[in-house]
Computed example of a mutant assay.
Amino acid sequence: MREFIVEADGGSRGNPGPAGYGSVVIDAATGETLAEAAEYIGVTTNNVAEYRGLLAGLRAAHALDPTARVHVRMDSKLVVEQMSGRWKIKHPAMKPLAAEVAAVFPADQVTYEWIPREQNKHADRLANEAMDSGAEPPRARAATITDKTAADLRAAVNVATPSPGWAPADMGAPATFVLLRHGETPLTPQKRFSGSGGTNPSLSDVGRDQAARAATALAARGTIQDIVASPLTRTRETAAAVAERLGLDVTIEEGLRETDFGAWEGLTFGEVRERYPDDLTTWLADPAAQPTGGGESFAATATRIAATRDKLVAAYAGRTVLLVTHVTPIKTFVQLALDAPLQALFRMELSAASLSAVAYYADGNASVRLFNDTSHLR
């Protein structure tokens, strides 16, 4: 069985910016270069360019011998760890690229190794030549690289950047979630646990007024394109007030429901501390701990919210979506965006009918743009 070494690299001048990739296939036994591939792929991110370089290198190796064993060497820790299965691919827009990479060879024929940049000079040079030229270099030894067009891939990953901030302003819109906590219920001012396993209360008169004020504020923004809500009554009622004002329909998403607080539902914090002191202490110290009576842990909630986030980002790429949900889901959206520990949930204050916002980009990054804004309630 033949053995190949694939060295690949990609880069973006601006991240996102003008981007290109380079890859080389080497005979592991002789050190001979068997194929090179490089391409300018337009404006995108470093991560996309790196994955494109890897994809081109593997396809070149496959064209030479589909039965060969392949050892990939890259200076991208992200790509190596993700394709090795040790790191999760967080953003749904990156998953199609990774899936294409994984489909070139059977998994047991490919291994991955991270190398320092200085040991990846050949592929790095090809990538820089591609970026310099703005066109595909006329080089291909012993293999023809068949690939999707840059336009097709850019459409597939929908590369986007924020308008103000760290990147150019002309890159298109990210998937932006405006997060609205529901208005008050009779349990809210008493600070009682109110999750998805309790009495499912409706909004109080105060809560309905808060929902109306939030609707007015969001109408003034003029940016909301879709509304998605938790299935619980208080979020449905809040979403309905906004939808009526904006002339939009409401989509119900089960994944946006509040945490189930088990036997603590309807109790105040003090009552829980009095009745279940040991369980409460454990819960405050360990995000994997469940509330008494088989409630949902914060770790389980985070897993659910991450899956819901991925689903919604894929469904609403490039759009601004109002998510009407609850305290724990909103805090978890922010915690995940910041890559903060789950204990950070205990250090966030989130008021009834408050607005927060997180933008999600095609390379898996996120930007928290707003948190706990209550100015529309004053």
Rank of each mutant, 00 (worst) to 15 (best):
residue 314 A to N: 06
residue 255 G to P: 05
residue 170 D to S: 04
residue 3 E to R: 14
residue 36 E to R: 14
residue 303 T to L: 11
residue 324 V to R: 01
residue 67 T to M: 10
residue 93 A to I: 04
residue 148 K to L: 15
residue 282 T to P: 03
residue 161 T to P: 00
residue 246 L to H: 07
residue 176 T to P: 01
residue 331 K to E: 13
residue 136 E to T: 15
residue 227 I to V: 03
residue 286 D to L: 08
residue 43 V to L: 02
residue 64 L to E: 06
residue 341 P to H: 10
residue 25 V to Q: 05
residue 186 P to Y: 09
residue 226 D to I: 02
residue 147 D to L: 13
residue 190 Q to C: 10
residue 77 K to I: 09
residue 353 A to D: 09
residue 236 R to Y: 05
residue 259 T to N: 12
residue 346 F to A: 14
residue 171 M to C: 03
residue 316 Y to C: 01
residue 5 I to A: 01
residue 187 L to E: 15
residue 144 T to V: 11
residue 125 R to K: 08
residue 292 T to S: 14
residue 298 F to N: 10
residue 7 E to H: 04
residue 133 S to D: 15
residue 134 G to M: 07
residue 369 R to A: 14
residue 99 A to I: 03
residue 99 A to T: 13
residue 78 L to P: 04
residue 65 D to V: 06
residue 326 H to E: 12
residue 100 E to W: 15
residue 296 E to R: 00
residue 163 S to R: 13
residue 296 E to I: 00
residue 139 R to C: 06
residue 315 A to F: 03
residue 236 R to A: 09
residue 55 L to R: 12
residue 186 P to W: 08
residue 310 D to Q: 11
residue 23 S to V: 14
residue 71 H to V: 07
residue 300 A to L: 12
residue 72 V to W: 02
residue 169 A to F: 04
residue 53 G to R: 12
residue 186 P to G: 05
residue 285 A to D: 13
residue 377 L to K: 07
residue 257 R to E: 06
residue 68 A to W: 02
residue 55 L to P: 13
residue 163 S to T: 14
residue 336 L to H: 08
residue 376 H to S: 02
